[in-house]
């Protein structure tokens, strides 16, 4: 690890000021930043530690229209929050099905949203070319071991999968993030936070270096209660998704779908919202056939590589299964 200076921020404003110095980066839970520093992928000159900022660590469900989460809240705390469990089971599940409890006790929501890919060519360092790690060096995954790589949003520069779970469930529920920077605060819809790699895979989101995610707001909806997060992976726990699906439903009295949310994880270079699949169910009942059909629509544009085509069929089935669970909860 390269030597770096460490400074502990006493306030959000103080952190923003500190981020103004060249090479300064944020440290929150550390589970991504410090890990990537060990791998020499992140090489900050200065780390600005915001882990201790109590002002960012809260869950506020007092508003009738919004669930409000502090960006500094720990993943484990939000996963276990009774309100979240009841009103947004998909969000709770996307949190507790990520990593391990130890890591969830450390990692913050804001940091988790910006978690970087687990592509082994990215993390492995030399000798693997990686445009994300070293722009212009190439992409080893394109012709390599791509079993876990993206089916959506890849480019000729990068097919690395966005690895997070929380962003998937938040995306399904139209979450918005609030960002603080030197020019004040602004809001960014979660759907616009992450960007596809294109020719610049080193750029993963729309925030600038001196901005901090301070809050996440999730509009309350009945579909929140009728929701789930299904995560399929190579083992039953403590692993990243091969494919995941966040689904939410609001059903009319006759069981037909009034509102449908479907977002896909583990398959895109960024979180994927399956809007066409959502629309396909409106007004229909959720049956094995319609759920499967929605899954097929969700994966219609998938572009497989060499070893990952099975994740299309797996994803279709995961969406179908997750819709059935959502239906049970929404009924």
């Amino acid at each position: 690890m390269k030597p770096f200076a460490y400074t502990r921020a006493e306030s959000v404003a103080g952190a923003i000021t500190a981020l103004g110095s060249p090479g300064a980066q944020l440290l929150a839970g550390g589970t991504t930043m410090y890990d990537l520093m060990k791998l020499r992928i992140e090489t900050p000159e200065t780390l600005v530690d915001i882990q201790g900022l109590k002002a960012l660590n809260y869950v506020d469900h007092s508003r009738p229209d919004m669930l409000v989460l502090g960006a500094g809240a720990r993943m484990s705390d939000v996963a276990d929050n009774a309100f979240v469990k009841k009103n947004f089971p998909a969000i709770s599940e996307s949190l507790w099905r990520a990593a391990s409890q130890q890591l969830r006790n450390m990692a913050t929501l804001g940091g988790n949203l910006l978690q970087r890919t687990r592509c082994s060519y990215f993390r492995g360092g030399e000798p693997f070319p990686c445009n994300k790690r070293e722009p212009g060096s190439g992409c080893a995954a394109l012709e390599g071991l791509d079993r876990g790589h993206a089916l959506f949003g890849g480019s000729t520069s990068c097919i690395a999968t966005y690895p997070g779970d929380l962003a998937i469930s938040l995306l399904a529920f139209d979450a918005v993030i609030e960002v603080a920077g030197p020019k004040g605060r602004r809001t960014v819809p979660l759907a616009q936070l992450h960007v596809e790699p294109g020719d610049t895979p080193q750029i993963e989101h729309v925030l600038s270096d001196d901005e901090i995610i301070v809050e996440i707001r999730v509009p309350r909806t009945p579909s929140g209660r009728g929701s789930t997060y299904l995560k399929i992976r190579d083992r039953e726990s403590y692993a990243f998704a091969l494919v995941s699906a966040a689904t939410g439903l609001t059903l009319a009295r006759d069981g037909s779908v009034e509102d449908c949310r479907i977002a896909l994880g583990g398959v895109g270079t960024r979180p994927i919202r399956a809007t066409a699949a959502e629309r396909s169910l409106i007004g229909k009942k959720v049956t094995a056939a319609t759920a499967r059909a929605a899954g097929e629509i969700a994966f219609a544009g998938a572009k497989p590589g060499h070893h990952n085509a099975f994740r299309i069929e797996l994803g279709i089935r995961a969406v179908a299964d997750a819709l059935q669970t959502a239906k049970t909860r929404a009924s």
Binding site: S120, G124, A140, G144, S237, Y238
Partner: peptide, 23 residues
Amino acid sequence: VDERFGGFANPTLEEYVVPVNAD
């Protein structure tokens, strides 16, 4: 294995998947 580079390509406890308690 990625034959272009040699060695083993999943040399971590994340990528070399051993059973966890939940398995």
